[in-house]
Amino acid sequence: MNIFRFVGDMSHLASFFLLLAKLIYTKSSTGVSLKTQALYLTVFVCRYLDLLVAFVSWYNELMKIFFIAASAYIVYVVATSTRNSNASDTYRVEFLVIPALVLACFVNETHWSKGGWSLNVMEILWAFSIYLEAVAVLPQLKMLHQLEDTTNITMHYMASLGIYRAFYLLNWVYRLYYEGYWHPIAVVAGIVQTLLYADFFILYYQSVLLRLPS
């Protein structure tokens, strides 16, 4: 594992702790999009089905289990939070889920001649999870743009997700150059996903960094 991948993973891990800290210490899920969190849970469950059939490393196994468990817990907390009206969580997620599923059915890494039926369904779900992750942040972005008063911790949560994406891009450049490793589906979707965060970082700069005492 190269340093870019590791920094990316740690930033991703940090994003979970930032969000959990926000939910637990402020006892409020205001400003957190339930839709985005439910999409992330869907992403992790669909992508990490390989936990059942393939072992890569303890690092991968534990991270995957943590990502599924933490996102399930976050969805539970936000969904049951009475203080959150969710009035501004208005993104139409069917416009994300359905195209991602259709695209995954046509553009995926299945090898029908080689794999069994269940393994190929897993490949379709893997591609679906990649496409869905690329756009899953959109409901949260829409909320951030609508809400005047977003807590800094929610913004730091988003920033750590953005850093995770950026370092994964560096990781892929590194792996392509030194290992010849390259999954076009993941790379193209990853570039799209990272570009979506560019919009967030402009907001982050304006609303968080410019407010810091100089």
Binding site: D50, A54, V56, K64, E109, L119, E123, Y168, H183
Partner: peptide
């Protein structure tokens, strides 16, 4: 994995 290379990323 079915793919040419194992998916070892998260």
């Amino acid at each position: 994995a079915v793919a040419e290379e194992a998916k070892d990323e998260l």
